[in-house]
């Protein structure tokens, strides 16, 4: 139970970070992606700051040892890059990536709820393609870089 509360707490913090940063405002996200137009580069600092905090802490945690999840290994293939291309297209089209759509759905935001419903359907579809119709020669080992 304690572990569940800690997980809950970390991710309430994660969501709060997304809210403060502006990632839950799809028009702002699209402004960030509008490199060739009226570009709003401020959201680059979200990933920059997240990495600046995460990288040294990750290195410290890994030096301490213990059991933790590591990234999936694989090839540079259609799944990795084609999937990323489709993800980017969806992100640009709606202005929501999955984290902010979950947070905004929690706020009862109708656009985010619709995007999230589509995202869940997309994940479900992707899981159905796996195994039956392999898109690459990569071993089907760990499908998710961050949560096998």
């Amino acid at each position: 139970m304690k572990r569940l509360l800690i997980s809950f707490g970390w991710d309430a913090l994660f969501g709060t970070g997304l809210l403060i940063s502006g990632m839950t405002l799809p028009a702002k996200v699209q402004g960030f992606l509008d490199v060739a137009g009226n570009w709003d580069p401020s959201l680059a600092f979200v990933m920059g700051a997240a990495l600046a905090v995460f990288i040294p802490l990750r290195i410290l945690i890994e030096r301490r040892g213990g059991v933790h999840e590591t990234l999936a290994r694989g090839h540079y293939d259609v799944r990795l890059l084609g999937g990323a291309a489709l993800f980017g297209a969806g992100w640009g089209l709606g202005g929501y990536c999955p984290g902010p759509s979950v947070v905004s759905a929690g706020a009862g935001a109708l656009p985010a709820i619709i995007v999230l419903a589509g995202t869940l359907a997309g994940i479900w579809l992707a899981d159905r393609t796996r195994g039956s119709a392999p898109l690459s020669i990569a071993p089907p080992a760990s499908p998710d870089a961050c949560a096998p």
Binding site: L80, G90, G95, I114, A121, G122, P143
Partner: peptide
């Protein structure tokens, strides 16, 4: 919006 979510979810899951 629904198509945007579908593409994002499908693409991210495939891409890992």
């Amino acid at each position: 919006l629904a198509v945007a979510g579908l593409l994002a979810g499908f693409g991210a899951r495939i891409s890992g």
